[in-house]
Computed example of a mutant assay.
Amino acid sequence: MSESPQFPPLFTGKALPKHTDPFDKAVSRAIAGVDSGTIFYSEAVDTLRAALVLAPETPLEEAIQAVYVAQIGLAESLGALAPPEVPVHFAWPDRIKVNGAVCGGVRFAADVSDPKAHPDWLVIGIEVPFMHLGGEPGENPNQTCLYEEGCVDITPMALLESWSRHTLLWLTYFMDSGFARVHNEWRPRCDTLGETISQPRSGVFVGLDEKGRMLLRQGVMTETVSLIEFAEHL
């Protein structure tokens, strides 16, 4: 694997010093008008941190579904690079789980918050720890890192390359076919589906609706919870 990651067509990479937050940089550059498809990434070796800038052509309630695309891209890239016995799952709305423990996640922001408004930009960031930054391994059984799960042969830049390729592929599916195909791929990877959950709210996680909103049953009532509620406010 080359030191500088190679990105697929339509994506370009911008390397950042390891102490610079790629998500914050991506948001500031998106506001300034950077090209869609730009991925800002940290050169740190202990954690993969990257953020993709998109310029959606749909209202926010549809554009935000690309968050699921980024999650699928991450799960598929880990599946391709990690040992075959390492399972990767999602916990709604934004966490990635490896072997049942949280191992990073996604974050996202847009320049609008109204579901019907058309955003000028959408930034989706990923963060995956490769090694523990503090404390002893196993100290928190609900948190893990890739090296602790036997993924010692993966590097952040290799995972970044793979994530960019898988994410572009699924973005193409998403733009061509809509959310249904994305939903069908995402659903089996969600390990809290059908379970009683307490976060982000209490209830039974029934599934997702056609707009990608959580269906949460509380007694005889079912409410919808949108990813938009968990976008970072600028």
Rank of each mutant, 00 (worst) to 15 (best):
S2H: 12
E3W: 12
T12L: 03
T12Q: 13
K14E: 15
A15E: 14
A15W: 10
A15N: 08
P17V: 02
K18A: 10
P22V: 00
A30T: 05
I31E: 15
A32R: 10
G33K: 00
G33E: 11
V34N: 07
S36D: 14
G37Y: 08
T38G: 07
F40N: 08
S42A: 12
E43F: 02
V45E: 15
L48F: 11
A51D: 11
L52E: 13
A55V: 09
E57W: 04
P59T: 00
A66E: 14
V67N: 10
V67I: 14
V69P: 06
A70S: 14
Q71M: 14
A75W: 03
E76V: 01
S77P: 12
L78T: 02
A82F: 05
A82K: 03
P84L: 00
E85R: 03
E85N: 08
V86E: 06
P87I: 00
H89S: 15
F90I: 02
F90A: 03
F90Q: 04
A91S: 10
P93R: 00
K97N: 05
G100P: 06
G104D: 04
G104S: 07
R107N: 06
F108P: 03
A110M: 08
D111P: 07
S113V: 12
P115W: 10
K116T: 13
A117K: 13
D120P: 05
L122P: 14
I124K: 00
G125S: 11
G125Y: 04
M131I: 11
M131L: 06
L133P: 06
G135N: 02
N140C: 06
N140Q: 08
N142W: 10
T144H: 01
C145I: 03
E149P: 05
I154L: 09
T155Q: 09
A158T: 09
L160S: 08
W163F: 15
S164F: 04
R165S: 07
H166E: 14
H166C: 08
W170H: 14
D176V: 07
G178M: 09
A180V: 15
H183C: 07
N184I: 05
E185P: 01
R187K: 10
R187L: 14
D191N: 11
L193F: 13
E195G: 01
T196D: 13
Q199M: 06
P200N: 02
G203R: 05
D209C: 06
R213P: 11
L216T: 02
R217V: 01
Q218A: 04
Q218F: 06
V225G: 08
L227V: 05
E229I: 03
F230H: 11
H233L: 13
H233T: 13
L234Y: 10
